[in-house]
Nucleic acid binder design. Sequence first.
DNA 1: GAATATACGGAGTGGAGACTTCGGATGGCA
DNA 2: TGCCATCCGAAGTCTCCACTCCGTATATTC
Lengths: 195, 195
Amino acid sequence: MATQPTRADARGNRARILEVAEEVFGRGGSAASTEEVARLAGVGIATVFRHFPTKQILLEAVVVRHFDRLCRRAQSLAESDDPGPAFFDFFGQIVADAAGKLAIIEAFTDAGGDVNGKAGQGPRDLREAVGVLLRRAQDAGAVRTDIGLDEVHALLVGVSRAVAHIRLDERARARALEIIFDGLAPGDSWRQPRS
Amino acid sequence: MATQPTRADARGNRARILEVAEEVFGRGGSAASTEEVARLAGVGIATVFRHFPTKQILLEAVVVRHFDRLCRRAQSLAESDDPGPAFFDFFGQIVADAAGKLAIIEAFTDAGGDVNGKAGQGPRDLREAVGVLLRRAQDAGAVRTDIGLDEVHALLVGVSRAVAHIRLDERARARALEIIFDGLAPGDSWRQPRS
DNA sequence: GAATATACGGAGTGGAGACTTCGGATGGCA
DNA sequence: TGCCATCCGAAGTCTCCACTCCGTATATTC
């Protein structure tokens, strides 16, 4: 893995490239070209390849960054006093900004990347953090106890992908989420209002 | 749109190309090459391009065929005497073989296609057929009445994409479906507005 | 304000893949 | 069986894009 460069301009460029890459690949998927990233970042192509020797590696870096952020968000929510809302909040937030973000992960896997492999600790950490969120929500009686992380994961990814794919207006998205939340709620106490 | 060719060999080739293309693009997405389609179909590249002047057009033809089949399935289920199971059956079936099929649609949109545009009547017909399924299931009291086609569509696409994307084992997939089905079912003391 | 290691940019290079060309084969019909 | 319109395939062309080379610029250090 490329170490942090020592010169200030190099560090700045590296950061800017990562930033732009997230946007560009989020929009165009893996079909977007490295050259466009370079142009929008205001650097030459060579600079991009100096920092990230391969398009694949660049994508990986973007994905890692993304997982990091998600994970931190989940961890901070896990410290909430209100585990039920925290869980559903996280779910809703992920879905809300899924549109561009998912395209990045797709781009990464399209390019032959394995999210559970080299992409580092990210996905595992995120999974763990969501697991904590889930367990606490279940302990608090806000989520049915007969489901596990796998199912939640499936739903999370699924709804995100749906939202990213079809043009759902605000209302329809909220509705779809509501259906899933109702399905996640425990049988009898599912009438409790959620944030 | 290319008209059906008159000579028998040409018709046969066209059919075989379509068949193979569905499999190839289902596996490799839009990244799969036209050349591979030709090779597996046992014809030259030129033959593929003669029948489908553009990769995009080939993808479109595959997608149209796919929607046609889905639509017919929905229509035949819509005539069932048991609207509730019919609806959930269709849902489950779609999800079950989503893996390869979805990649095709993705490939099509990746290549700049618009599923709701030129791809013809397919998606609209399918939507309508699902609408009938839904309405009948609602009339039979098997599905809550406060949701519409948009939400069902979102869930359908979402779960399909989730299943196609992550490697869910049989059990986890069934669980995820169960959650959604629970969410779709009518509750008794139903309403309580949530944000 | 030099010296120098570090970083930069633009002009290549090579390969992959969508699409074309054209001489040759062949199904369909008399 | 023989004619010919239709169809086929191998060998291109052309464009795009990931990745490299090398001469130039500039942060940093003294």
